[in-house]
Design a binder for these strands. Structure first.
Lengths: 332, 332
DNA sequence: ACCCGGTGTGGATACGTTTTCATGCATCTC
DNA sequence: GAGATGCATGAAAACGTATCCACACCGGGT
């Protein structure tokens, strides 16, 4: 079977017009009503689909939007991706997905791949700093950051969750319950949350209770377990991501800490399993899907004036993992 | 800034050779050592990157792999996607992602989009039947199914988890614990699992204990709750997916069924939160990431003889959600 | 009658690459 | 030494589309 694809030329011949006219009709240009209808009917008849290849080459840009995430396996990013997909689908644009693994080098590599593909619109949860993203902008790509920003790249619009308010609400909630020794379990690239934590806690902040993990499960668990063992006097912990929260739950169980009696726990990001835990986890929900959707909107409606950053609200969802400060934990 | 992209022509001029030579050198064709080196050095100097646009048009196919999943939000599919991404990255191929939502129509639409993009390699967790996938094959796309197959499309190679053995192992485990009234909670597109369930259980099978949900969380919950209420005599349940398992846990808690005392639970697919549950869930683990990776391998190494279906082993991971059959549940 | 602006149309070109084909040169064979 | 064989090379032809430009035509103004 050597079926050649039907091209615009076939349509033009069949409709007895020039290729230019067919192109115009299909791209919404001007044409006389009868010509338009004839072309349309012939195109439908031959079930002609314009080749993106030809078009892309001609306009020196592939449609389509690039999406760069640290890890598609993380439900937060998966939801974000889902939002992007939803918006892109309604615009008929393909989405090229890449996983950076929070690695600057891999991110740069993927950016190179996108450039090679002629992609001219990118949504990213950036891992690298401003330098990594310089080629992108130099090449004239319209870029939008989501969920976090790259250091030193204030010129790129971003759509973010209102982390600061989220942290403040959670910390206020915990201090309201009487907690004083509150730990923060952080991950990579969340300076906003950490600084909000410090700021809200003010004089109560204890630098020893602030620990950072790398992006992996193992690292998160090790850090959480180490913290709990090293500082038995802490009564509450704020986990700055669902991976960290998972680690905290696991580590607490391993050390026989009862939640919420011995330890109150608030986790960033509402995930389906937060409700399945016992007790169900109190969380700071982020509109991950919306973030993706809005980012896609921004990147599609480019050309209009560069919009300011978008800040989406977070919400503290109180479930059962926080209680009043009990007596200090006793070593077993 | 009107920086024109550096093209192969620029490189050719700068290296004082023809464009054909540059193309050959860069594509690994034959050339004299000195020419090769000169071209390479000039290309590096200008930091030339061949445009995928031109190449794609020339060879009438976009490189790149299309990936069609029901829902990127489902961790199973997210892991599968991760496997595909990993393999694709090592091959330098972009991945175009689409979410079908388990909807035949949307799937067809996405297939159309892929065709229009000139994608000629597709990995899919198919939702539609053979008819939906007819255009794909007619257009000569190399297609590989993952995780499940489309009805009536035995001509498409597939990478699957060994569902039948997984189900058999789980059911044997449950009957070994003394359970006789075992329910099956199924989702869409998993005939393999269901038929294995029936076959393994043999005469013990009770059609009333087999219930199917649609793909959504709400539907899963409703079906699970209905089953538990309607048949208080059941003592064990096999959930045919992590969404179903989630629903089962939730419904059991809502109805005050203690796991595993009142109800033993085995879930298909090992997800991170299975360990966080209390009790931790006994699961049938599927190598989702491997499935994706292998599928990507298959689709990339096409041209070789069409390989037979690949069957990847599942594993029963015993945790704490199954116990010996207790006395029949008493109504509260 | 003439010109002029507007509109619909098609020919031609360019987008950047790969691949075919012909050419030239060097080496090998009889 | 003549012909054959091999290899490196560049000119040119696609690939399918969008767009520039020129042309024809039509109506209304002077």
């Amino acid at each position: 079977m050597n079926m050649r694809r039907t091209t615009i030329k076939d349509v033009a011949e069949a409709a007895r017009v020039g290729v230019a006219t067919v192109s115009r009709v299909l791209s919404g240009g001007s044409a006389s009503p009868e010509t338009r209808e004839r072309v349309l009917s012939v195109a439908a008849q031959l079930d002609y689909r314009p080749s993106a290849l030809g078009r892309n080459l001609r306009q020196r840009r592939s449609g389509g939007i690039g999406l760069l995430l640290p890890d598609i396996t993380d439900t937060l990013y998966a939801r974000l991706a889902d939002g992007v997909l939803t918006c892109a689908r309604s615009a008929g644009e393909p989405v090229i997905l890449g996983a950076t693994g929070d690695d600057e080098e891999r991110e740069a590599e993927l950016i190179g791949m996108l450039l090679e593909q002629g992609v001219d619109r990118v949504i990213a949860v950036p891992s690298g700093d401003g330098e990594t993203w310089a080629p992108t902008l130099r090449a004239g790509l319209t870029t939008v950051f989501a969920h976090r920003i790259a250091a030193g790249r204030d010129d790129v619009p971003a759509v973010l969750a209102d982390d600061r308010t989220g942290v403040r609400t959670a910390v206020d909630y915990l201090t309201g319950l009487g907690h004083r020794r509150i730990a923060y379990l952080g991950g990579p690239g969340q300076e906003q949350r950490l600084s909000a934590f410090r700021q809200t806690l003010g004089p109560l902040v204890d630098e020893e209770l602030i620990v950072l993990a790398r992006g992996t499960r193992d690292s998160a668990y090790a850090v959480a377990a180490g913290l709990f063992q090293h500082r038995p006097d802490l009564t509450a912990v704020l986990a700055g991501g669902n991976l960290l929260g998972e680690a905290a739950v696991l580590a607490a169980r391993e050390l026989d800490l009862r939640v919420p009696r011995d330890l109150s726990l608030v986790m960033f990001d509402d995930v389906p399993w937060a409700e399945l835990c016992s007790p169900p986890l109190t969380v700071i929900a982020q509109p991950a899907q919306d973030i993706g959707y809005r980012a896609a909107e921004l990147v599609l409606r480019a050309g209009a004036r560069r919009p300011r950053n978008v800040l989406l609200p977070t919400e503290l969802i109180v479930r059962g993992s926080c209680g009043p400060r009990g007596t200090s934990r006793s070593p077993r």
